[in-house]
């Protein structure tokens, strides 16, 4: 069971404490707001990190947010990354301008998949999953990675839509 979080990430990154009308609107959909936050916990800080350290999850999330130029979320995930154990070693991959020079085969494959499925999911095929398998990811790892990518992209879209409501 994920503990209810007192800090809602989406409210925080959009500074909604200064926009009470939009905050109240989100409360009209309190259940989905809460489940969006518990989904964040499950994707970024699950009970067991297993083969994706919290730092790696945060770094990949920061990279995806930056790929979509979601500055608020990218800044949030970079901050999260810096707070995670081993985070400083992964700062470079949070920047989508950086490839995986010197990285191991597994990380190279993960970054390629993250970039493809974030920006061009329609291009993904069975061959992309086979590349992950060849790089040493098992079936559960592949579902973990897909779930992280899918969640962060959801959050990017929600933040983009709410920002439209906030600013108009």
């Amino acid at each position: 069971m994920t503990a209810p979080s007192t800090n809602d990430v989406i409210d925080t990154v959009l500074g909604l404490d200064r926009f009470p009308d939009l905050q109240a609107l989100r409360e009209q959909r309190a259940k989905l707001k809460h489940l969006s936050q518990t989904s964040y916990q499950a994707a970024l800080r699950p009970a067991e990190a297993r083969n994706f350290s919290y730092a790696l999850r945060a770094a990949l999330a920061a990279r995806m947010a930056a790929l979509w130029k979601s500055q608020e979320l990218a800044a949030h995930f970079r901050e999260l990354l810096e707070s995670e154990e081993g985070g400083s070693a992964l700062v470079s991959i949070a920047n989508p301008g950086n490839g995986a020079e010197g990285a191991d085969t597994r990380l190279v494959a993960i970054l390629a998949h993250v970039d493809l499925v974030t920006l061009s999911p329609k291009e993904a095929t069975r061959a992309n999953i086979e590349k992950l398998t060849a790089a040493g990811l098992d079936d559960r790892d592949i579902v973990t990675l897909a779930g992280l990518i899918a969640f962060v992209n959801y959050q990017v879209l929600v933040v983009a839509g709410l920002k439209m409501l906030r600013d108009n």
């Binding site: 009209q28 499925v117 999911p121 897909a146 899918a150 992209n153 439209m164």
Partner: peptide
């Protein structure tokens, strides 16, 4: 806000269903 979430949750679902 309902429309935003309906579109966003398919940004999630599509990235699972189409890639896995």
């Amino acid at each position: 806000i309902d429309l935003i979430h309906a579109v966003a949750i398919f940004g999630w679902a599509n990235r699972l269903m189409h890639t896995l």
